[in-house]
Each structure stands twice: as C-alpha cells, then as structure tokens.
Amino acid sequence: MTPGLGKDLVGLEFLTPEQIRLILDTAEPFKEVSERPIKKVPALRGKTIVNLFFEASTRTRISFEFAEKRLSADTVNVAASGSSVSKGETLVDTAKNLEAMRIDMVVIRHGASGAAQFLGERIRSNVINAGDGKHEHPTQGLLDMLTIRDTLGRIEGVKVCLVGDILHSRVARSNLWGLTKLGAEVAVCGPRTLLPRGIEALGVRVFGRIEEAIDWADVLNVLRLQLERMEKGFIPSLREYYRVFGVTAERLARAPRPLTIMHPGPMNRGVEIDSRVADGPHSVILNQVTNGVAVRMAVLYLLAGGRPELADAAKGTGGAAE
C-alpha cells in the first residue's frame, strides 16, 4: 500500500521517510513534462488553487504557479498588499472567503511560524506551506533533497553542511528534518549568534569555521544572509562575514574532494558566496530551480488526487484496463 500524504503539507517534520521518498519518486516523471513541446498534462484539470502570499517572493511563487499551470489547474494569486489583508482582515477570514468561492487548494507564504498549520486546521481545502516565518519551507527542503539525489545518486550517508544563518532559516529547518529522516549526515556552520542553541542535541554537527565544514562535507547548502540581520547586531558587518564565512573558490580549492554547491536563492554574491563558486562547475543552483517545479508538481498531484474512500467505488465500475 502506497502511503498517502494526508490533507496538507505543513513541514517535513511531520512526514515519514516513506512519504518523503514518495514525493521525490513522483517528482521524477514530472521533470520530463517540463521538457515536452506542450508542457502541460491534464491531471489537475478543474482544480482551483489560490496562491496566498503574505510575504514577497519571486522564485517560490513563480515555481508554484508553473507547477500548477503545467498540471492544468486554474490559479489565482493573492498578494498581501492591495488585498483585503491590508484592510485588516484576518488570515482565517481571508481563507474562508476564498473557500466560499469553491477553491480546492491554498498555497500559503506567511511571516508567522505556524500559519500554514493554523490555516490547514480551519479550512477544508488542501494547504501547502510555501514558507511560514522561521518554521519550515518544505518544498524547498524537498527540491534540495531531489537535487542532492540527482547529483550524488543517493541521500543516505551524504554529508551535507548548511552554511549561514541557521537560526532564522526555515530552509535550514526543512533541510534538517528531511535529510536526517533519509539518513544523510547533517552539519551546520555559521557565526554562533546565528546558530540555534542546543542544535547538537538533534544529532547535527556544528562547525565554527568554514574551513572545517569544507574539509568534512560532500555538499554545501549556502543559505542567504538576510541583510537585516546585520542591522539587528547578529553579525558585525557583511565584509567581515564574507571574510570569515564566505564560500570562496580559494577555500574550496583546499577541499579534499570537489564539493557540490547549493543555494536556495536569492544570492548575495560577495557576501555568503563568491561568484566564481556560484557559477562554477560544481554549482547545482540552477538545477535546484528546475527541480523546484517538478517537486511542487509532485506535491500538488499527490495532495489533489486520490480520495482513498472513493477508490473501491471506482474499482467497482471497472476503471481503467489495468
């Protein structure tokens, strides 16, 4: 029996290793759909999906929108500015009003940790978390894992180091959950002020120096340093951050083996990553973007289709020849 995904995708913390593998395996055939002359299949025809983005996003929103359109769903984008949200409507009221227009799924990005789960518990539609505060960004975690699997052929036993602002990063959290569930070795590296206290207790290695991380890892997932962190005093200056933690070609040249370089974007070239590294032969940053569409198609497809309670009825009528 194949495991389903349930109603919502809130975070990788709540998925089993089998469910994560199901999503990654389902993403494989969807890669091919985006290479077809007509990049569209009718799987979600007639489904209505609302992309509810309370925070700015380019890549994730466009990636979800491509995924939805390539599955033939009808999509509506709602941004916080210019909508009733800016008039003070609550999240639940906004969603209930959308639901009253008979939608099927909501993709939500919100500044508050837990917003996706909160919404999922209050509406009937499927809810997909596209990033909630400092909590999780599950589809980013999944696309990172798919990219690692594509590049190295496996996830189990691969040494992945997340570099940068771990404390505020939902990408880091989703990666930590997903990678450890599939048996990767995970480490973090960054200034002490940007590492969550007690993270070692999760079985995560901590490197205080980027040189040590480079020496150990197969994969570096370089996180974006949010520039406002400097204003709040977590790091002294961007120049100093680059000098101490920047992933540079010189540092990588001393690695015992070539490292796969990942970055969830948008990049601050010359802050957390050197341009020669970002554009170098071991960078899979654009593969991550390509895989993002396939992973999101897989998640939409798995959540939207398949009502197990109706499956028996379907078999009774014959269904397909298989």
Binding site: L22, T26, E32, V33, A43, L302, G305, R307, G319
Partner: peptide, 23 residues
C-alpha cells in the same frame, strides 16, 4: 507512455502508484 496524468478518474483511483516514464 504513461497515461496516469491523463486519466479521467484521478479523483477515484486512491493512493497513487508511482508514475512510469514517458519517452
């Protein structure tokens, strides 16, 4: 070809089989 994504009964087929290759 794998026709899973073109089926007219996706809602009814229950837990998804993994989709085969189309080439």
């Amino acid at each position: 070809i794998d026709i899973t994504l073109y089926r007219d009964d996706l809602e009814l087929v229950g837990p998804k089989p993994v989709i085969g290759e189309t080439r």
